[in-house]
Amino acid sequence: MNKEKKVTIRRQKLRNNHIRGKLLFFLALAVLLLMIAAFAERLCPYDPYAQNLLEAQQPPGISHPLGTDRYGRDMLSRVIIGSTASIYAALLLVAIITVAGTAVGMVCGWFGGKVDALLMRISDIFLAFPGLVFALAVAGVLGGGVQNAMIALGVISWPKFARLARSLTLAQKESDYLMAARLAGSSTPKLLIRHILPNIAGPILVTSVLDIGTMIMELAGLSFLGLGVKPPMAEWGSMISDGRVMLQTAPWMVLAPGGAIFIAVMIFNLLGDAIRDYMDPKQRNREQCE
């Protein structure tokens, strides 16, 4: 019996180590990606904006590992420089909607009543609003560009976090420890920030990390509709839509940025999964019980 227990503990340690290792690995990858995006300018082998029609549409080779586009610009350099726009825009966007959505959701969950009903109806309207109409309208009012694409996406995406935070807050509101804190006379802001937020942060963090990948794709989708960055700025989504018709004649023009999106989305998704495994209290509890 005793021996068996030891084995279980060892297995559990191993398993925990494995989860932690996975988390650290994907975290490192994500950080690497962010570093590439941060130092993009220095990493480019060529000037990503220098056009040279004599070298237009060259297939991948020694001098241009990912080929060149129709203006003769080096694809590798454009993919690298494009990471700045694509990744930071998605990160910033997710950060903003997470914070805004969570705040609204907590307020709704905590106060309930008319405030809740009103804010939830508003979120209904935005959730039900077709993204396409919204995005094009924003582009019409504010013009194209990354910031405006982000505004369009932000406005229709925050309700998701509001709903999540609301239901999590509702669940916490009933719990014993919160009753205790309330009885002890904590103020409402203190209750919300000190007690509820830490307890609901986990699932929200996981959702928002998983959302980074989605947002990279959504931004690319908006670029596809001609709503993305202004020329000559490089951004993965607009690079794909730009080279889309060349899929048969110059496939590298689509595959290079497509591959970049794919890798970035994959890293953030796997990171999200790893964080979930690491933080999921149910899983941890279960292992402790074993």
Binding site: R121, I122, D124, I125, A128, F129, V133, F134, L136, A137, V138, A139, G140, V141
Partner: peptide, 20 residues
């Protein structure tokens, strides 16, 4: 009803603002 009213008004307003 409120969702429909809200959403049609919003889209009406947005498309007008969008110009063209």
């Amino acid at each position: 009803i409120p969702v429909l009213l809200g959403i049609t008004f919003l889209s009406f307003a947005m498309m007008r603002l969008a110009g063209g």
